[in-house]
Amino acid sequence: MRKYWEFFKIDFWQALQYRSASLGKIFFYGIILYVFSKLWEVTGKTENLGLSPNTLVWYLALTELLVLSYPYLHTEIDEDVRSGNLAYSLLRPASYLWSRYFRGFGSVLARFFILLVGGLIFPLLFGGGWPENPLGLLLFFPLAFASLSVGIIFHISVGICSFWIQDSNPIYWVWQKLMFILGGLILPFEIYPEWLKTIAWYSPFPYLLNMPVMASLEGDIQKALSCLLAMAAWFVVGSMLATILFLFARRSLVLNGG
């Protein structure tokens, strides 16, 4: 386990070094929140949303914080496959899959902490102050770590597809947009039609974005615990998927001579 902790630390500290890229991300994060705060301002005047414009800005701030934290893990796996580095990694006394997982988790957490600065300042600037239940934000941290951890394992599965299609970017685009829609990145589920909500709850996405964020904004401990349970179940599913995909991928690598 110690070796995986070292993998985690390497990528965690490395991700903290890219200061200019981080500043660019924080700026982009601010721009997105500004655009949507204006959108909710305009629509909030004319329709009853059920949620206040301030809550909607906080909702978007927290969901975006989670989504923007993900590194381009799939392209790193692509590169390992293309360059042949993967063959060397297989010789090491550590599982390629889990070393990638812990490196990815280190990287995603570092990005999360960098973006968190914006995540706390921007909603105060563009919304209308703190959320109605500010203490609920404390729930967000354990839920966010669990969400990112589950997201990373699925992200790795997307990257492993590069064994068969050379470039996993196209699959990543669709995975990411499904996360936006079925996870409720931009619009909270309260706005969704019933049929789409039903489809969404059969996928892991609402447990990665909508549910942890709503549980935090509502300060609902019961909801937070249910969310953690669901995330644990999806983590098992994601790990099994990544392991099976990797086993098939490794088999083709061995057959082709590495």
């Binding site: 470039d167 196209p170 699959i171 685009w173 990411q176 947009k177 829609i181």
Partner: peptide
């Protein structure tokens, strides 16, 4: 073809 089709899907889903 994958890039074309998946980009189309990506845009429509978004």
């Amino acid at each position: 073809l994958m890039q074309v089709i998946f980009m189309l899907l990506n845009n429509l889903v978004y």
